[in-house]
Amino acid sequence: MGFVVVTLGGLDPLLALLVLVVIAFAAGTVGAALGVGGGLFLVPALVLLFGIDIHIAIAASIVSVIATSSAAASNDVQSGLTNVRLAMFLETATALGGLAGAIVAVTVLANQSNILVFAFVPVVLIAAALMASSRDRDTVVDPPPDLLARRLRLDGEYVGPVTGIRRRYRVTRSGVGLGFAGLAGVASGLFGIGGGIFKVPAMNTLMNVPLRVATATSTFMIGVTAAAGALVYLFAGDVVLAVVAPVVLAVFFGTILGRRYGHTAPVARLKVLFVGLLVVAAVLMVARGVGALP
């Protein structure tokens, strides 16, 4: 089998591939169970464990983000949970941000892998803080008026999963939300993450969107965001197929497992695990960046 190009210490190449698949599968499962993508784990794991250049790790992650989005979004969009108008509106900023981020990564930062490794650290720490403080904020009946949201008819309704009651929500602060979506897009293009960890709290806390709707809408959006970046990486030659193929397939099947059994998972414990792993990843990436790690 001459397929394997990943290496892990002195491990047999086939075993190294197996470890890669297990990590990608776990990233997909945990990500789906918590409603975020797996990119935040995947990129540090590929860089730290396998010594893969961060550009190639980011490219592999961003392609797997598209797979996650496409696989996870279809049911919610057909059932009506996803707010399609809100998604299309915010995608203008996330796609533009994703394109810009990817262009910066493959041009200005093409030979600056260390800068990308360092820059990834605050992103990981902010994500950890957001996850640690995340909660389901209830929508308010009478949010601040927002002319743009009204003009674009962004309001929606959804059926509560437990109560079965149809509830209406009014979207507000669409301009601020658009700004956050743009930042999430840049983070996606630069670092190969989906950006849901930033978009979901922004939609829930600022824009008065119910958490379940925000999660479904974000999942639906990240495919477009990631595609804007992935197409740039793909043709820049950073999509190394020997890394991408096993990662995408493993993340994909992990996502299916996470979505099917996510509601039975101990979410509180998974959150602690998620935050802990991110902090460890941040510390190790700093150590790698300053040359304390091989």
Binding site: I66, G223, A226, L241
Partner: peptide, 16 residues
């Protein structure tokens, strides 16, 4: 593998 990745990246374009 290349076609698989390209189809994946093209899916959101078709969706839009």
């Amino acid at each position: 593998l290349f076609v698989g990745v390209v189809v994946l990246a093209a899916t959101p374009v078709v969706r839009v």
